[in-house]
């Protein structure tokens, strides 16, 4: 039997650079209140959200991704030609064929990098990061561009008072590359398809096309069920990710949970009993919930404001529609 040559990758992988793009239009709660019967105080108390960004016609999924990626590439100090893989996580790119990752890879000037999209909702960044790490350690790419990008304003029912205020648009990107030391811990991830009704698109696209429904599909959720699962089940997953990486809460510098809702973040911090010194990402206040984009966007902001610094140890956890989740510990770029 012929013997295959083994693949040869890097010993470990790390995040080398991060970049974000937030659409130019800032949308305060007052705008949301034009279509729902609520109040600024109610929205802030239930979600922590004060403003979010909504994309205009030019701020497409590809355009926002390219902006964020350019910054991540510059931050990593590499050239686009060195990128061997582009992974895009999104649920709000409405032209599904071809994968938007291919257009992004081309426009960035990569050298025919492998490029594909994934769908893992608000856990998408962690899923894509895990794939990127595998590609680098296995040897199929030296550098991988991971993008979380959403235009959730296109999937928001502005008349639903439970969700109209939640969602925002934006793109976050990281460059993952080789490392001599472990800098992305083991991923604790999974799915709970038995809870698929908890967060979902209201109807399939085809129902809209055939006229079976006259309202464009939107994302809907069962708030209390999501809250319970996100806080109490995800706190266990977050703890498992710390344990898997061999990091104690005292050694942790930064906590970057998916920016779903500040109440979830507060409750997770309490449930996890994180020490006072741990910096907690609260980007949701001015960015809203941007699903797959939320973790890299929050990471970028913490580093830009100086609240976190390069080399810090950060726990990241994404969770959402599926239900799916992914948590890991990373060294910040």
């Amino acid at each position: 039997m012929a013997k295959l040559k083994p693949s040869k990758g890097a010993p470990y992988a790390r995040i080398l650079g991060v970049g974000g793009y937030r659409p130019t239009r800032v949308v305060p709660n007052e705008v949301i209140l034009e279509t729902i019967d609520s109040s600024d105080e109610w929205i802030r108390s239930r979600s922590g959200i004060e403003t979010r960004h909504w994309a205009n016609d030019e701020e497409t999924v590809a355009a926002m991704s390219i902006e964020a990626s350019g910054k991540a590439i510059a931050d990593a100090g590499i050239s686009a030609q060195q990128i061997g893989g582009v992974i895009v996580s999104t649920v709000s790119h409405f032209k599904q064929t071809p994968a938007v990752a291919t257009e992004i890879a081309d426009k960035l000037g990569t050298n025919k990098a492998a490029a594909f999209d994934i769908s893992a909702g608000c856990a998408g960044f962690g899923y894509a990061l895990t794939l990127a790490k595998g590609m680098i350690v296995e040897g199929s790419a030296e550098y991988v561009l991971v993008i979380g990008v959403e235009r959730l304003s296109d999937l928001t029912d502005l008349e639903d008072r439970a969700t109209a205020f939640l969602f925002g648009d934006g793109a976050g990107a990281v460059i993952v590359g080789p490392s001599q030391e472990p800098a992305i811990g083991p991923t604790v991830w999974g799915s709970e398809g038995d809870k698929s009704e908890t967060i979902k698109q209201t109807v399939p696209w085809t129902d809209y096309r055939t006229g079976e429904v006259d309202k464009f599909p939107a994302i809907t959720q069962e708030g209390q069920a999501v809250f319970r699962w996100a806080v109490f089940e995800m706190a266990k997953v977050a703890q498992q990710a710390l344990d898997a990486a061999g990091i104690t809460p005292d050694e942790l510098d930064v906590f970057i949970p998916h920016q779903a809702n500040e109440r979830i973040i507060d409750s997770m911090v309490k449930t996890l009993k994180l020490p006072e010194h741990v910096t907690v990402a609260r980007d949701v206040r001015t960015t809203g919930n941007t699903s797959a984009a939320s973790i890299p966007l929050a990471m970028e902001r913490l580093l830009a404001t100086g609240e976190a610094k390069s080399g810090d140890t950060a726990l990241v956890i994404g969770f959402g529609a599926g239900l799916v989740y992914a948590a890991t510990v990373v060294t910040l770029p």
């Binding site: 209390q224 069920a225 809250f227 109490f232 409750s267």
Partner: peptide
Amino acid sequence: VDSLSMVEVVVAAEERFDVKIPD
């Protein structure tokens, strides 16, 4: 106690009284 705090109350009550209170 708003709808989200209610979930926290329920989870704490579940632990304290060894009871399951489904969503």
